[in-house]
């Protein structure tokens, strides 16, 4: 698959096919074809929006939860990870190397709501041995996008 195309889409999935064609030198038709193939093959799983929630008045908190889990024979962490990812409160689930097993990012409206979700839902799952909750205090960069950059171009008009 065309890596250049994928890189451009990662940067901005709202480029039009015509713009992508211009930038890559492919024909518009070819771009359309490549993108739809990447979508149908599952290489591209979705498109999302990077939001600076601090600019919204409605509260948004998220936390990174370290989960230690007892793996199941023949299954490893698969079953529990897939169970956890189904909660709408859960944004991200990763299997990790190192000191814990699953990294789960949970979002909610208040600290309380997230904490209660962890206490009531995650920690009560059978194979979960322990949880450790780390709240996100400030987001600086997410999905390659800088959130606290006002985009000022500090170049002066000095070049000739």
């Amino acid at each position: 698959m065309d890596k250049k195309l994928l890189k451009l889409l990662c940067k901005n999935s709202r480029y039009t096919f015509a713009q992508l064609a211009d930038m890559t030198g492919m024909t518009e038709e070819k771009v359309r074809e490549c993108v739809s193939e990447m979508e149908s093959s599952g290489l591209i799983r979705g498109y999302t929006t990077v939001v600076d929630w601090e600019r919204m008045n409605s509260a948004y908190v998220s936390a990174l939860i370290e989960l230690r889990v007892t793996p199941k024979a023949g299954q490893g962490f698969e079953e529990v990870a897939k169970k956890i990812m189904k909660y709408p409160e859960v944004e991200t689930v990763y299997l990790m190397s190192g000191g814990y097993d699953l990294c789960v990012i949970v979002k909610g409206k208040t600290f309380q709501e997230v904490a209660m979700f962890v206490a009531k839902e995650l920690s009560t799952i059978d194979s979960v041995i322990s949880t450790s909750t780390h709240f996100v205090l400030r987001r600086y960069k997410e999905m390659d996008v800088e959130l606290c950059n006002d985009g000022d171009d500090d170049r002066g008009n000095y070049s000739l």
Binding site: D153, R155, N157, Y158, S159, L160
Partner: peptide
């Protein structure tokens, strides 16, 4: 003085100018 300057001097007095003038990597 370089002819490039003239327009930049005007541009600098205006707000929300979008420039394709700078010959220096970003």
């Amino acid at each position: 003085p370089s002819g490039i300057r003239k327009f930049f001097d005007i541009a600098e007095t205006m707000k929300d100018v979008i420039s394709l003038g700078v010959g220096e990597p970003d």
